[in-house]
């Protein structure tokens, strides 16, 4: 019964995500010819259509799909872990830690780079890891379940603390640096090559792999930790896995594209309104719908005021907000 439902939902949402990813690179501020883009007889350096397709649009669409699906799935996991519908992938300080790293790299002009990771993504990844490690160390005791209250408060406090540090660094920065910092905080999918995507893949795949084991224990956990324990769920282990995988997914997404808001909270709720609350269905459906949603929002962001672009985070909130409210009112 669940299996049949899962198959049909995944097929439907998968088709939506695939459709968005296939259509988005064809649409943009300039018209390109697909035949010419794939014409191998023209050298790549002479082929403007191929450049636009493979350098400007494909990496961007793939980044949107990866970031959208990881943030949406991480949102589902965080909401279940914290037992709080207002939880987002950014609630526990991961994104603010990443932002602090990015702000430091921009302000102090670090040119440190490792492999394909440039200084700003590298610094934001380091910030995200440090922030999650602090929260994890504060909220866990060996062999005991995590207190979600402590986890939530530690995360929120760390968020505030890192935000203060960001403001302090920005205050010391000069105008152009402060401006670039603000732009980074709006989020941006225009990565310009496949290298940063490849660099993020191990983290993304690992976290998505862990997510695959989470739906059943998360279902039981959302009924209550005690009930879950009597049904044979190792509550502490599930919580730790959920926290680590969601943090890893968020760190990968934020270091790739900056903190794009709204996806992690609105997509899980949208999907729940459409398919119910069973995590076995909600989690994969959210990942797929998140990909389609962010790719679609970015398409709007880069075409609606072309050649000027709207930051994609603005579009996710402006498109997602009213849509969510409409669905909320219609369902209740």
């Amino acid at each position: 019964m669940v299996r049949a439902r899962l198959t049909s939902v995944v097929c439907a949402y998968g088709a939506l995500a695939l459709g968005a990813c296939l259509a988005a690179p064809l649409i943009g501020s300039t018209h390109i010819s697909l035949a010419r883009a794939f014409d191998r007889s023209v050298p790549f350096a002479d082929n403007v259509d191929a450049q636009i397709f493979f350098v400007a649009r494909m990496p961007r669409v793939l980044t949107g799909a990866i970031v959208g699906s990881t943030l949406a799935a991480a949102g589902v996991v965080m909401q279940a872990l914290l037992g709080n519908p207002l939880a987002t992938p950014f609630t526990l300080g991961v994104s603010t830690g990443a932002a602090l790293g990015a702000v430091l790299a921009i302000t102090f002009g670090s040119s440190l780079a490792v492999g394909v990771l440039a200084s700003v993504p590298l610094a934001s990844l380091a910030g995200a890891v440090v922030a999650s490690a602090i929260v994890y160390a504060l909220a866990t005791r060996p062999g005991r379940p995590i207190s979600t209250m402590v986890l939530l408060l530690a995360g929120v406090t760390l968020n505030a603390f890192f935000s203060a540090l960001i403001l302090f660094v920005q205050y010391a920065a000069d105008f152009t640096q402060a401006y670039r910092t603000i732009r980074w905080l709006m989020g941006d999918l225009d990565v310009g090559s496949f290298a940063p995507i490849v660099a993020s893949l191990p983290m993304v795949l690992l976290s998505l792999g862990i997510f695959a084991f989470l739906p059943r224990p998360l279902n039981l956990l959302s009924v209550g930790a005690d009930t879950a324990a009597t049904r044979g769920v190792d509550v502490g282990r599930t919580q730790r896995l959920a926290f680590l995988s969601a943090s890893l997914a968020t760190a990968a997404a934020v270091s790739l594209a900056g903190p794009i808001g709204f996806v992690g909270i609105v997509v899980p709720h949208l999907v729940r309104l459409m398919v119910g609350v069973d995590h076995r269905v909600v989690l994969p459906a959210s990942a797929l719908f998140g990909a389609a949603f962010l790719v679609g929002c970015d398409l709007v962001a880069r075409t609606v005021l072309a050649p000027v672009e709207v930051p994609v985070g603005v579009v996710t909130a402006m498109v997602g907000g009213p849509f969510f409210l409409w669905l909320l009112v219609r369902k209740s």
Partner: peptide, 13 residues
Amino acid sequence: VIGRDAGELRGVY
């Protein structure tokens, strides 16, 4: 160009 992230073509002003 008056601004760009170090080492990549992002955040170009």
